[in-house]
Design a protein around this nucleic acid. Structure first.
Lengths: 197, 197, 197, 197
DNA sequence: AATGAATGAGAATTCATTCAT
DNA sequence: AATGAATGAATTCTCATTCAT
């Protein structure tokens, strides 16, 4: 059985299980997500969103009185931290590799682009990103501690390792998109393990 | 004596040592650099650039027929790779720490923000970033090889380490801005060394 | 009783017989028609059109996303060929004179000026004029054939006569405007008849 | 020996007989003539003229302080009435055909387009066109009288014939350009002769 | 005479937002 | 709730013209 990516949970929720069209509000958010990711928030006109969502222009403002509300809603409703399962004690490398492959950030690739791009200029997005980042570092930290009990001696180094790990995991997608350069998460996990043992 | 940052070489050149005002074109680029960094390209009006540069609106058009030309010119003229190479063989940790503190990307903090932010939506900026990133990885790779001749055995691991190093170095500033979380380059350097020895 | 000119049919339709104001879109086209005729397309600002139409500037864009769309729409909606055909066999001179006085081009004097002036530089206008001209020549040809069955022998001459007739009819108004020289259509009709009999 | 068209007299004068480049002022007028004909006066920027003339922008204003001076100068210097030879008494049809082929308007095709187009909105151009038209009608009238002494009886008809002849001759080029429909001058000459005899 | 930087008024177009229905 | 016409401020871009050198 193929496991659908975590970020598609929201996607599945969008269109009813009966295959019916998602409702207008959802279609607006879908369109905005795609357009914001591709062109950026500023360069996307609300009229464009309406057109792609196949709803009349006025309806966008019906649901989202200000344009910024669309962005805020997207970030609030379509990004989050995976609450499910955590660290699997035992083999350090395996645990880290698992974490690498399953960053607990629940957000579609499009939402990640939006998150990083708009955080630069929109306080509310930045706040969200801050929280998400902190949580990811905490998880990584916890996982490292769990996996590598021996390195407990140096908290600072563990902290740096977790942050590095988090940074690489968060940005690898971005970096790949921008530079075409791919970093293998397994390799990074392996490096971290080697550094801490 | 504090060494002025490398990216300010251009800045110093802008206003002559004689204290004379930089010329109009330079003032326009200066203003654009600052404004693009703070508000983003799309959210910055050319009129705003002109006002900050203290030049008439029309002069911006005179030098840069399209608004996008301002961005393209900034990226072309104000980002680059440090050519001064300083391979310091000897102590691995020291060498890496040096590299960490002196990323060979020649670009002001403002230009870095612009580079990362606008690469997402502007092809020409993305191309530049791609080149810069590749060059930085190459440098890091070379430095690692020089510093850690013993690890030559595993090229893939070295490559991953260099890429991780480069990614963290490039993004740390960004991450710090966005999330407030600071990563100590020395720590990262130390981690890399430990991972490779 | 004086028969109102054919081109005013549309005009009458614009403002209801109930004296109600024509709608915004119509007022915009009315204003554009007048201004384009007087000053030319290029020299007429859309703001000017809006002012004369007594609508806000933005509404012009709402109906006509590009300025050129106003011109194109005018030409499409306000020029045409009279469909009411009236072949009146019998006296040749009378028939031709009738045709002279009733060129089958349905277009206000303003639209005619626009048509001739802008055809020079705007392809879509030129296409329209081409069609109109061809149709007028066909009508003239048909009328001549009907009126002067005896001249059927020389098709080329008939063709030339029709074209000449059409040219003079089409341009007489233009010429008069530009040069102040008036050509009497009756005289031209008479000439044609004499030439063909 | 091929006889170069009358309107190229000016052209020949432009570049020295020694094949040297025409001077700046001439190149400016050349460029303006071409550009005005293609795009119209309003739609042609002075910078464009300078570019095509391969002269610095400032030089255009050196010779022609106002943009309109370029147009006025063109019309003054590059349109005129042929003063050379006139009617050849004898065969009417031949004389008219000759006149048809040799309209006494000395102006390049480009200048004719400019003349007709800009007359609509520029008084000075209109004045010139008026004069030229009057002169052409006078010539045609004279030629007709000379060629067809028998028809002297009806001055009004002669007048109408001359005007028709002039109109067709003047506009045929325009019409052809706009509508693609060609009128054979010989045919028109023939028609006129038939109408008057 | 020749030049290109400088200027600013004004053009087209964009677009978030409002509002009557 | 739904709709699309209406609004006007703001933005990018154009361009004739001036001017110092």
């Amino acid at each position: 059985m193929i496991k659908s990516p975590v970020w598609s949970l929201a996607a599945r929720r969008r269109s009813g299980a009966d295959g019916s069209e998602p409702d207008a509000r959802t279609r607006i958010l879908d369109a905005a997500e795609k357009l914001f990711a591709v062109s950026g928030y500023d360069a996307t006109a609300t009229a464009e969103i309406a057109k792609h969502a196949e709803v009349p222009k006025g309806l966008v403002f019906h649901y989202f009185p200000r344009k910024i509300d669309v962005l805020v809603t997207l970030v609030h409703e379509r990004t989050g931290i995976e609450v499910l399962d955590e660290g699997v004690p035992g083999d350090p490398a395996l645990t880290l590799a698992g974490l690498a492959r399953r960053v607990p950030l629940r957000a579609s690739p499009a939402m990640r682009r939006i998150l990083f791009r708009e955080a630069d200029t929109h306080g509310s997005v930045r706040d969200r990103l801050r929280n998400l980042n902190a949580e990811i570092i905490r998880r990584a930290s916890f996982a490292l501690e769990l996996a590598l009990p021996g390195s407990r001696g140096d908290a600072a180094r563990l902290e740096a390792a977790a942050a590095t790990f988090a940074a690489v995991l968060l940005y690898q997608e971005n970096l790949c998109l921008l530079t075409g350069h791919h970093i293998d998460p397994d390799m990074v996990a392996d490096l971290i393990v080697r550094a801490l043992t």
